[in-house]
Amino acid sequence: AFSSEQLARLKREFNENRYLTERRRQQLSSELGLNEAQIKIWFQNKRA
C-alpha cells in the first residue's frame, strides 16, 4: 500500500508524463522509498 504522500507524488508525475524513463523511475524509487517495480506497475495500472 502507498502512503497518501507517495500517491500524491505519483499522481503529479503521471500528470506531467504518462511514461517514465528508467532514470526517472530510479529517482522516484529512491525519493519515495519504493522499489522500481512498484512504481512501474502503478504507472501501468494508471494508464490502463
Results as ranks from 00 to 15, higher is better:
K40V: 15
I39S: 00
Q26H: 09
A37V: 12
E36L: 05
N35P: 15
S29Y: 03
L20P: 15
A8M: 09
F14V: 03
L34T: 03
K11E: 15
N45L: 12
F14A: 03
A48E: 12
L28R: 00
S3N: 10
Y19D: 07
I41H: 13
A48Y: 08
F2T: 02
F14C: 06
E16N: 09
S3A: 04
L32Y: 02
T21C: 07
L7T: 07
F2N: 02
E31W: 04
A8C: 10
Q6R: 03
Q27R: 09
K11M: 15
I39F: 01
L10R: 01
R23Y: 12
R23C: 09
E36F: 05
E22Q: 12
R12F: 09
E31L: 06
Q27I: 11
T21V: 03
T21P: 07
I41S: 12
K46E: 15
F2L: 13
L20I: 10
R24M: 09
T21Q: 04
E31I: 06
A1G: 13
E36A: 09
S4L: 11
L20E: 05
S29F: 03
S4A: 13
A1Q: 12
R12L: 10
S4W: 10
Q6G: 02
E16A: 07
A48N: 11
T21E: 05
S3R: 04
N15H: 11
S30Q: 14
L10I: 02
K46P: 04
L20W: 04
Q44H: 09
G33N: 10
F14Q: 02
Q6Y: 02
N35R: 08
F14T: 02
R18S: 12
A1Y: 13
L10G: 01
E31N: 03
N15E: 15
N17T: 05
K46C: 14
R12D: 11
E13G: 01
E36W: 05
G33S: 06
W42E: 02
R12M: 11
E16I: 09
Q44N: 09
Q27L: 12
W42L: 03
N35E: 13
A8P: 01
G33E: 06
R25A: 15
Y19C: 10
L20Q: 02
W42F: 08
F2Y: 08
L32C: 03
A37S: 12
F2M: 10
K11Y: 13
E16L: 09
S3E: 03
L20N: 02
A48L: 12
N45H: 10
Y19A: 05
E36G: 07
W42Y: 07
K40S: 14
N17H: 09
E13L: 05
R23F: 11
E31R: 02
S30L: 15
S3T: 15
R9K: 07
I41W: 14
A8W: 05
N45S: 09
R9V: 10
A48W: 08
Q38M: 12
S4F: 10
T21H: 04
L10Y: 00
N15W: 07
N35H: 10
I39T: 01
Q27G: 05
N45K: 10
E22T: 13
A1N: 11
S30D: 11
A48Q: 10
E36T: 06
Q38I: 13
F2R: 01
Q27S: 08
L20G: 02
N15A: 14
I41C: 13
F14Y: 09
G33L: 05
E13H: 03
A37W: 14
N15K: 12
